[in-house]
Design a protein around this nucleic acid. Structure first.
Length: 497
RNA sequence: GGUCGGAUGGCCGAGUGGCUAGGCUCAGCUCUGCAAAAGCUGCUACAGCGGUUCGAAUCCGCUUUCGACCUCCA
């Protein structure tokens, strides 16, 4: 595939991607609700769409990536509700929503920078767009598709479904929704059970509240994304992303609201990532099986055998296609860690290799294979972002690179052009598009010189065949996490864990 | 209950009607003072039962089984 195709959840088909404005792409991704700490499951969408965003830019699009922060609504923080149940509490004893929102927003940003996810161009907050949300609700009411009851406003789904394909995105049948027996908040106020809130009246004790034409209240969950995406990306934009679990009701509701407000569907391509599971079950708050990111990075969780570096997690996620479920296990993460170390080491070696400039390949068969492996990466990305296949090809190339270092393969086996292509492919795909970084930061010069000294002493010992001393140095260093390697050419290299 | 999606080798995971990804593990070999790393070689799977086809893991049907959504959820 020479052009980007993506799986559109709305049509359930792979479609060629064509942006609305040539050269520009608008991407909206549902961001975090900052009432708690992010967990492993959350890493999937933000890493997935970070790659989407990077790839679009690689293709030459100027991308506006918008990802919201949900900081309004009916909040709880680990059992602490955003409702002051005891009215007499002193100010500092009460939960201050802004304090909680700030705390978890900071944690979120910190974690995803460790994942090397690029910051969105715009990261709008729901509380910062109350006016836009109210305007949109008024618009929907004026068009006759929403109604007010006791200070709350609901969207009239039944009326909408009469003229529009409600349920298409999530494969839902309205009749089923109307018959649901669930007891939901505000159910008796709604004309139909399938109706959803655009605005909720705030009871007196509710802390988060804003003035509106319908009294004091707070916005419904779905309206923020519609209001903010249209504000920053336009009434119709290119790609809307998020987890599969948001298809219904969140995204379905977004489509309905925006369709009424703007007269047409809001999004051209809906993309949904699949879930991360643990023991076969979705990792989620309500299942009580989450591993928080801070726990994952520190290894401090009963289910974790060790700490996992953010890059290992990123690699592990990208080794699987984004629309497949991905099951967590220590074994899988550990396999990813080894694999990633090996791949990155090959990349590091490649950067140090230099080609003589020969225009002819000494091994045309290998040369051709390398060209194919490199060029296929673009096809794989274009085929609905098949990062798993891209990585597979990079792994095909790793033995070629390692062989060049080990002497099993001549660098001139490849033509100068192919060698340049090889270098460029690794840089472009591994670093720029998949967004991978080395596991350890650059070492300090001081550590470097200390190790050089030890290596020198050890080399002397080896010359005298004093293997007891040389092995002692190597073993003691290994205990502290520094692995010495005697290279073929007599030099010594090291890696630090 | 309704809707949808899976079931791939020891493990994780791509994938397509025929040319049998990739990673990790494991075994053997090469290199090496010994290691480590690296290279080479080996391990050949697609839940079950039918059907379509010259040919199916890949298409169709049924069965078993797991999961997601239907409520806040990435």
């Amino acid at each position: 595939m020479s052009e980007l195709h993506v799986h559109n959840s709305f049509t359930r088909q792979k479609e060629k991607f064509t942006s609305i404005t040539p050269g520009y792409a608008g991407l909206y991704v549902c961001g975090p609700t900052v009432s708690g700490e992010s967990h492993l499951g959350h890493s999937r969408p933000y890493i997935t769409f970070d790659v989407v965003q990077r790839y679009l830019r690689h293709l030459g699009y100027k991308v506006r990536y918008v990802r919201n922060i949900t900081d309004a609504g009916h909040f709880e923080e680990e059992g602490r509700e955003a409702i002051d149940k005891v009215g007499e509490k002193a100010k500092l004893e009460k939960m201050e929503p802004m304090e909680m929102v700030q705390k978890y927003t900071n944690l979120f940003h910190h974690a995803f920078r460790l994942f090397n996810c690029e910051d969105p161009a715009i990261e709008p907050t729901a509380t910062g767009h109350i006016v836009e949300q109210i305007n949109m609700i008024e618009d929907i009411i004026s068009k006759g598709y929403a109604y007010e009851v006791n200070g709350s406003v609901y969207f009239d789904v039944k009326k909408y479904a009469a003229s529009y394909p409600y349920g298409k995105l999530s494969g839902r049948v309205l009749e089923d929704q109307l018959e649901t027996t669930r007891e939901l908040d505000g159910q008796d106020e709604k004309r139909n059970k399938a109706d959803f809130a655009l605005w909720k009246n705030a009871p007196p004790e509710h802390i988060m509240r804003w003035k509106s034409p319908w009294g004091e209240g707070f916005p419904g969950w779905h309206i923020e994304c519609s209001a903010m995406s249209s504000k920053y990306l336009g009434e119709t934009f290119d790609i809307h992303g998020g987890g599969m679990d948001l298809q219904f009701p969140h995204h379905e509701s977004e489509i309905a609201q925006s369709t009424i407000a703007h007269g047409h569907a809001p999004v051209n391509y809906w993309m949904h990532n699949n879930m991360i599971t643990i023991n076969g079950k979705k990792m989620g708050k309500s299942y009580n099986n989450v591993i928080k990111l801070s726990e994952l990075f520190s290894g401090n969780h009963p289910l974790l055998e060790q700490a996992y570096h953010p890059m290992v997690v990123r690699f592990y996620i990208l080794q699987t296609h984004y629309r497949s479920t991905l099951d967590f296990s220590n074994e899988a993460l550990q396999a990813s860690e080894r694999a990633f170390r090996r791949l990155w080491e090959a990349y590091a070696i490649l950067q140090k290799l230099a080609h003589s400039g020969n225009t002819d390949a000494e091994d045309t068969e290998l040369d051709q294979k390398v060209i194919t492996w490199c060029n296929e990466c673009a096809d794989f990305m274009n085929d609905d972002l098949n990062t798993a296949k891209v990585l597979a090809n990079l792994f095909e190339l790793a033995p070629v690179i390692n062989g060049m270092k080990g002497g099993q393969v001549s660098i001139e086996a490849l033509s100068a052009d192919t060698f340049a292509l090889l270098k460029n492919t690794f840089k472009t795909y591994l670093e720029d598009i998949l967004g991978m970084q080395p596991l350890q930061a650059e070492q300090s010069g001081k550590l470097d010189s200390v190790l050089s000294l030890l290596i020198e002493i050890r080399t002397d010992a080896k010359k005298r065949k004093d293997f007891a001393t040389s092995d002692q140095i190597r073993n003691k260093l290994a205990e502290t996490g520094v692995q010495l390697k005697d290279e073929k050419d007599g030099t010594v290299s090291y890696t630090i864990e």
